[in-house]
Computed example of a mutant assay.
Amino acid sequence: MSMALADHRPLRPQGAVVTGKGSLESFFAGLQPDWHSSWAWDHYEATILALMHQFGLKRLCEIGGGRDPLFTAQEARRYGLDLVVNDIDAGELALTPEGLRTARFDIAGDLGEPDIARNGYDMMVSRMVFEHVHDVERAWSNIHALLAPGGIGLAFVPTLWAPVFALNHVLPEKASRAIVHALFPARREGGGDPKFPAFYDWCRGSRSTLEPMLRRAGFNDIHIQPFWGHGYFDRMPGLRGLDAAFNRLAAKAEWRFVTTYAYVVVRKER
């Protein structure tokens, strides 16, 4: 997905000193992410590596990684990661590239599957997964159980009520699927990026909305990094311009009700 942005600040290099490294809020304050979602997409992997370096983490589980994990086996070795790729679907895990360990379980399930490792991960991450989960509060409670003390969870999610996702939320699945396929012709069933039904349970960009739920799940160190803007209208110049102006205004005014994406980041107490 193409997302152009003029003001595109770089991520701080891995190993950079961030003031108050024990706090997620201070970590992201030092990181200085841009408001536009292109930053979120371009720096997602680098943000994970920076968090792992900063907080001394090694054992990484990618939730819903399936056919398209963030890191190859070679990259995991290069970065010193003990990587496990998770998915609920055995068919998706069968497509995981060779050399990577896998674990099949439902992140919102009862944690009774054989592949469950309680307190077994230093970091658990997901990208465009939680909008497909029926019970996100239970998923966060399970992440708390699966993380080791001091471990970090990060979910990169699309959020309501961004107009583009609000439309996807209210339309019948058949209609929203047709629209996505029209906007992105390469994205077809059986292709490399299938579309799954989205529920958007707890997919929000507001800390005041999410914090009570995340505290019930067991977390106290919480950071919600909001992003605005998207690339869905790249082939529609008029609509693209109007939407870009709206998102720029929303970001400037900090309208969390209409964020487009968010990093939801939590840390388990030691």
Rank of each mutant, 00 (worst) to 15 (best):
Q225F: 07
H132F: 06
A253C: 13
E98C: 09
S206N: 11
S141G: 13
E113T: 05
S37R: 06
H169E: 13
A46R: 09
T159S: 01
D234S: 11
I224L: 07
L183C: 11
L214C: 04
Y79N: 05
R67D: 11
P97H: 12
G109H: 01
V133W: 00
Q14Y: 12
D89V: 08
S37E: 07
G218R: 08
G153N: 02
E62M: 10
R216I: 07
Y200R: 02
H53L: 10
P10E: 05
S208R: 10
T19K: 13
G151H: 05
L214N: 02
L83I: 07
S141M: 12
S26W: 07
P114G: 12
L51G: 00
K174I: 12
E45L: 10
P10V: 04
A217N: 02
F184C: 10
D122I: 04
P172M: 12
A117T: 09
L214Q: 00
F71A: 06
N168Y: 14
M124Q: 06
A29G: 09
D34H: 09
E131D: 10
M124T: 08
W41D: 09
F257K: 10
F55K: 10
P172E: 12
Q74C: 11
A217V: 06
G30K: 01
L51W: 02
F257P: 07
P33E: 09
D82A: 04
H36T: 08
E45S: 11
V258I: 15
A217H: 02
A117N: 10
Q74M: 13
L83Y: 15
L167N: 08
M236F: 15
A108H: 02
A178S: 14
S2L: 15
V129D: 00
A4N: 14
R240S: 06
V265Y: 01
A244R: 15
H43G: 06
A175P: 03
F196E: 12
V164Q: 12
A139E: 01
D201C: 04
V264P: 00
D221R: 11
G20W: 06
D193F: 15
E254F: 11
P13G: 07
L214W: 01
R207M: 11
P172I: 08
D68S: 13
R78A: 14
I63G: 00
F227Y: 03
A40P: 03
E211D: 11
A50P: 01
L83G: 03
M213N: 02
G190C: 07
G231A: 05
F184G: 02
R204A: 05
S2C: 12
A94S: 15
A108Y: 02
R78C: 06
I224Q: 00
P10C: 13
V264N: 02
T159A: 09
P158G: 11
V18W: 11
L51T: 09
E92D: 11
M52Q: 03
K268C: 02
A145Q: 13
L183Y: 13
L154Y: 04
R67G: 13
N168I: 13
D243P: 05
R59E: 01
F184T: 13
E92A: 15
D122M: 06
P69I: 04
I152H: 04
